[in-house]
Amino acid sequence: MIRSILPHKHTLHKLLLVTFFAGASTFSHAEEISSAQVKLIAGTCANCHGTDGKLAGAIPAIAGRPSTVLEAQLLAYKQGLQPNTTVMDRIAKGFSDAELSALADYFANINKD
């Protein structure tokens, strides 16, 4: 997939650093994640959190929660900093930090009703 905007030199350097330190992850995308792309990625979250992340139950709802909270939570899962986690760490590790940030933003902006 060709992303339309060529990264600015600064971003390119950051991108190179990110990809160098990304270790096992091999995502070749620019830091920009389109809203359509986030929406597609977010679809998989519905399987446990309900459509649009609205379903509350044993598994918490995520729609409408503050973006900063969601992002911090996701990054904590990814870095293995969340104790007593059962599955979210294993899942969060499959996404880049940029994707997790975009997902946090996406769910934060969903109307909770």
Partner: peptide, 21 residues
């Protein structure tokens, strides 16, 4: 045991969520 119990509860939560979805 607590983790096992949590996972059992999440299994139910998953079933509800995916059915709803």
């Amino acid at each position: 045991d607590n983790i096992r119990r949590s996972e059992a509860a999440y299994a139910v939560g998953w079933y509800n969520a995916i059915s709803q979805d």
